[in-house]
C-alpha cells in the first residue's frame, strides 16, 4: 500500500483500513494526517469532486484555435526547444564571428587574448543559460518569482560586470571616450535579429513581463558580444553608456509596450 493507493481509496469513497495501510502509516507522516480524527481530512478532501466540465464546446473552441496555427510563425514556434535555443544562441555568435573576420576592433592584435575570450565566454554562457530559460516558456519547472527576477537582473547587468572584470585598457583616458551613441545604435541594430527570432519562437500568446525583460536582457548580451569585437574604446563611461545600457534600454521599451511586442498576430 502506498500514498497513491490510499488516496485512490479515499477518492473512490471508502476509508482504507488494512494491515498494509497500518504499515504504511507508521512511516508516512503525510498520510497519517489524512487519517486523524476519524479520517476527517481524507474524507473532506475526497469530496472535492465537481461535476465534469462539458468537453464538447470546449474542444470545439480549442479546435478553432488550433486551426489558426498556420504560417511561418506557427511552424517556427513548434520547433523543438533545442533547435530554437541553437538558433537564438547561434545568431549572435555568428554575427560575432563575422565581425572578427570582417571589421574587428582596431586594437585586436594588442588586446590580451585571455581577457578578450574570457569576456566572450562569460557573455556566451550567460546568453545560453538565459535563452534556455526563455525558450522553455510555460514548460519550465515552477520557480519563485524572486528567483526568476534575480536571474533576469543578473543578465541585465552582465555586460556591465564583464566590462568591469576584463578591462582592455585605460578606463578614463579622454581619448578613449569615443562616441557612445554610435555604439549604442550599432549594438541595438546588431541585436535586432535576436529580438526578431525571439518573437518568432515565442510560444505564449500573453507574454509575461518577466519574459519580456529577460528577452531584452539577452538582446543586450548579444549586442555586447558583437560590440566587444567591434569597438576599441576602453573608456568605462563609453562601455557602460554605449554598450552595457543596450539591454536596459530594451527592457524599458519592452516593458512599456507590454505583451503586444511578442504577442502573436
Amino acid at each position: 500500500m502506498d500514498c497513491a493507493e490510499i488516496l485512490r481509496c479515499f477518492v473512490s469513497g471508502s476509508v482504507p483500513h488494512s494491515p498494509a495501510v497500518e504499515t504504511h502509516l507508521k512511516g508516512c507522516a503525510r498520510c497519517r494526517v489524512l487519517f486523524e480524527q476519524d479520517a476527517q481530512l481524507g474524507r473532506r478532501l475526497a469530496e472535492e469532486q465537481s461535476p465534469p466540465a462539458d468537453g464538447g464546446d470546449s474542444f470545439k473552441a480549442l479546435e478553432s484555435s488550433l486551426s489558426r496555427e498556420v504560417g511561418l510563425r506557427a511552424k517556427l514556434r513548434a520547433w523543438p526547444t533545442r533547435a530554437r535555443v541553437a538558433v537564438l544562441v547561434g545568431l549572435p555568435m555568428l554575427i560575432l564571428a563575422s565581425k572578427l573576420v570582417w571589421g574587428r576592433r582596431p586594437d585586436y592584435a594588442a588586446y590580451s587574448g585571455p581577457a578578450f575570450w574570457s569576456f566572450v565566454l562569460l557573455l556566451a554562457v550567460g546568453l545560453a543559460a538565459g535563452v534556455w530559460r526563455l525558450a522553455r516558456g510555460a514548460s519550465r519547472p515552477l520557480q519563485s518569482q524572486g528567483r526568476e527576477w534575480t536571474i533576469t537582473w543578473l543578465l541585465l547587468v552582465l555586460p556591465a560586470l564583464a566590462a568591469l572584470s576584463f578591462p582592455a585598457g585605460d578606463w578614463f583616458g579622454a581619448e578613449a571616450w569615443g562616441t557612445p551613441g554610435k555604439c549604442f545604435g550599432f549594438g541595438a541594430m546588431m541585436a535586432a535579429p535576436f529580438l526578431l527570432a525571439a518573437w518568432l519562437f515565442e510560444r505564449r500568446d500573453a507574454v509575461p513581463r518577466g519574459a519580456l525583460v529577460l528577452t531584452a536582457a539577452l538582446a543586450g548580451v548579444s549586442a555586447n558580444l558583437v560590440l566587444h569585437a567591434h569597438c576599441a574604446s576602453t573608456h568605462l563611461g563609453h562601455l557602460l553608456l554605449g554598450h552595457a545600457s543596450i539591454g536596459v534600454a530594451f527592457a524599458a521599451a519592452l516593458s512599456l509596450i507590454g505583451g503586444r511586442a511578442l504577442r502573436s498576430g
Binding site: 480549442l62 484555435s65 488550433l66 496555427e69 506557427a74 514556434r77 513548434a78 520547433w79 523543438p80 526547444t81 516558456g137 510555460a138 514548460s139 519550465r140 519547472p141 515552477l142 510560444r203 505564449r204 500568446d205
Partner: peptide, 26 residues
Amino acid sequence: LQLHRARLDFDSGQKLKPWLFTIALN
C-alpha cells in the same frame, strides 16, 4: 494550445501528466 505548440519537445520516455500540469500551473 501550449501542449500542441510544444509537441515536438515530447519525449516518449517521460510521463506526460507532470508536463501537462507544469504548463497549467505556470
